[in-house]
Amino acid sequence: MDRAEKNIIPVLGTDPSTSVDLVDGLAASDSKTIAHLLKTGIGANTLRATRSDLSYIEAWVLACDGTSLPWPPGPELVLRFIAHHLWDADQRVIDPDHGMPDHVRATLVKGGYLRAEGPHAPATVERRIASWRALCRWRGVEHPFSRDDVKRTLRSAVRASTRSRHRKSQRNVDLQLMEDLLDSLDARCSPAPLKIKEHEADRLRSIRDRALLSVMFASGGRRRSEISNLMFGQLIDLDPLPTDNPEWPDGLPSMGIRIGRSKTTDARDDNAVFMTGRSVEALRYWISAADITSGPVFLRIDRWGKMFDYSISAHSVNQVLKSRLAEIGCEAADFSAHGVRAGYITSALKAGIPAPEIMEQTLHRSLDTLMGYFKDEEQRQGKAARLL
């Protein structure tokens, strides 16, 4: 960590775009520039999660000891945090003192910091500890998170946890479901016999949503933030690919997308993913219909069909998916944008595509992480489940 990084202290609880204090003497304009670079380089979602995590940890310390969070935290405090959040529900029945004390829990519930019954999800505890560790590094203070006893305790507590893993999307948006979704949108994208204003507004949104969803899936199950932030300058026009398919007499249309900074990649990596066929055709049709030559690709469109010059939000990407699934009779509550990523990976693996090739599209660096997305909803009907 260099000197500049050590003097950047996030001020959590304020807007993430201005959540930095810098060394005295730095001009206000320079502070805003650094704040923008932090927000862009770290990511607004990461800053938001870090702010939330620290708020919870501060509330927990206050509930336990009646004092503010110490910097740096001692190893005993971190171990107590693990004990209070990754306890064993069965042991709690035998030993009432096991896990988080009742008075601490009551204080956190009253303050609105704690809602779930029982021990925390291991992923939540690991994320909060990672945020805690990162904040120690940003403040330039020593921390106990690298100590063997802390790492060993956390690892053992996570392994011993009996809490089932919660999936961000209860159901996958697999290849078949995505094709059904796009078929439905194809019908909505057809020009109306008469220029009916309401139909034209719906048609424009359908053209955008068809392109958005097909690109989201075909490019490797891109995250909703990557879709909402997609810029025209990231698109790479490529020559058609040869094919014997009579539907594409001129070859399969092909495009690339330069992936800048993402959750797992750095802009300097110069990663690119590729799409062919239906998704490329849908994207080019939208770009032509919206006359996009620069800036964001997927623009916001209001209910009356007015198109704005800024992109839809990541939250809206999720809502587009849910609303379009509801239109074809699916239960929207069972799905989220995360299900597109899981559906792409599951469909690709079931199609026999090698994992390294899939990882080139998803940009995963770990095979274990990739396999964590695999969810075959027909598992109980398969031969493996009926062997005996």
Score class of each variant (00 low, 15 high):
residue 207 I to H: 08
residue 163 R to E: 15
residue 62 L to A: 14
residue 78 V to P: 08
residue 37 L to N: 11
residue 132 W to E: 13
residue 97 D to P: 01
residue 372 G to H: 03
residue 115 R to H: 10
residue 182 L to S: 07
residue 45 N to V: 02
residue 129 I to E: 06
residue 130 A to I: 00
residue 368 D to C: 01
residue 229 N to A: 15
residue 222 R to T: 05
residue 48 R to S: 15
residue 123 A to R: 08
residue 338 H to R: 14
residue 102 D to V: 09
residue 186 D to A: 13
residue 229 N to V: 01
residue 4 A to R: 13
residue 322 K to P: 07
residue 93 V to E: 15
residue 139 R to L: 06
residue 204 L to G: 04
residue 195 K to T: 10
residue 301 I to N: 10
residue 309 D to C: 05
residue 293 T to K: 07
residue 180 D to I: 00
residue 314 A to F: 01
residue 77 L to T: 14
residue 88 D to T: 05
residue 21 D to I: 04
residue 75 P to N: 08
residue 106 A to V: 01
residue 226 E to N: 08
residue 244 D to M: 07
residue 337 A to W: 08
residue 266 D to Q: 10
residue 121 A to R: 02
residue 322 K to N: 10
residue 72 P to I: 05
residue 347 S to Q: 10
residue 192 A to C: 10
residue 244 D to A: 13
residue 286 W to K: 03
residue 175 L to Q: 12
residue 308 F to S: 15
residue 337 A to L: 10
residue 93 V to P: 00
residue 214 S to M: 06
residue 244 D to W: 05
residue 368 D to G: 06
residue 121 A to F: 00
residue 1 M to W: 04
residue 62 L to Y: 10
residue 165 R to E: 11
residue 187 A to P: 00
residue 278 R to W: 01
residue 140 G to V: 03
residue 102 D to K: 09
residue 93 V to W: 01
residue 34 I to R: 11
residue 166 H to C: 02
residue 370 L to K: 05
residue 354 P to V: 00
residue 301 I to W: 02
residue 173 V to S: 06
residue 111 G to M: 03
residue 116 A to F: 03
residue 326 A to I: 08
residue 121 A to L: 02
residue 160 A to Q: 12
residue 382 G to D: 13
residue 319 Q to L: 08
residue 270 D to W: 03
residue 215 V to G: 03
residue 248 W to K: 07
residue 268 R to D: 15
residue 320 V to M: 09
residue 61 V to K: 06
residue 363 L to N: 02
residue 363 L to E: 01
residue 96 P to V: 00
residue 307 M to P: 03
residue 17 S to W: 04
residue 225 S to V: 05
residue 350 K to P: 03
residue 348 A to V: 05
residue 115 R to D: 09
residue 110 K to C: 05
residue 23 V to C: 06
residue 157 A to H: 08
residue 272 A to N: 11
residue 17 S to K: 07
residue 318 N to V: 00
residue 387 L to D: 07
residue 193 P to N: 12
residue 343 G to I: 07
residue 190 S to E: 14
residue 104 V to E: 10
residue 60 W to E: 14
residue 255 M to T: 03
residue 113 Y to I: 08
residue 356 P to T: 04
residue 253 P to Q: 04
residue 171 R to E: 11
residue 67 T to H: 12
residue 329 G to R: 11
residue 245 N to Y: 02
residue 70 P to N: 08
residue 250 D to R: 13
residue 23 V to L: 13
residue 193 P to D: 15
residue 241 L to Y: 01
residue 159 R to P: 00
residue 139 R to P: 13
residue 327 E to N: 15
residue 153 T to S: 11
residue 98 H to L: 11
residue 69 L to P: 12
residue 1 M to Y: 06
residue 196 I to T: 06
residue 273 V to Q: 06
residue 138 W to F: 06
residue 255 M to V: 01
residue 142 E to V: 01
residue 122 P to D: 11
residue 49 A to P: 04
residue 144 P to F: 00
residue 53 D to H: 11
residue 230 L to T: 11
residue 237 D to V: 09
residue 97 D to Y: 07
residue 107 T to N: 12
residue 120 H to E: 14
residue 77 L to D: 06
residue 252 L to C: 09
residue 370 L to R: 05
residue 230 L to P: 10
residue 8 I to D: 12
residue 279 S to T: 03
residue 47 L to P: 06
residue 304 W to K: 15
residue 334 D to L: 14
residue 368 D to P: 00
residue 65 D to K: 14
residue 256 G to P: 08
residue 179 E to N: 14
residue 179 E to W: 07
residue 191 P to I: 09
residue 14 T to G: 09
residue 113 Y to E: 14
residue 237 D to E: 12
residue 256 G to L: 02
residue 384 A to C: 03
residue 372 G to L: 08
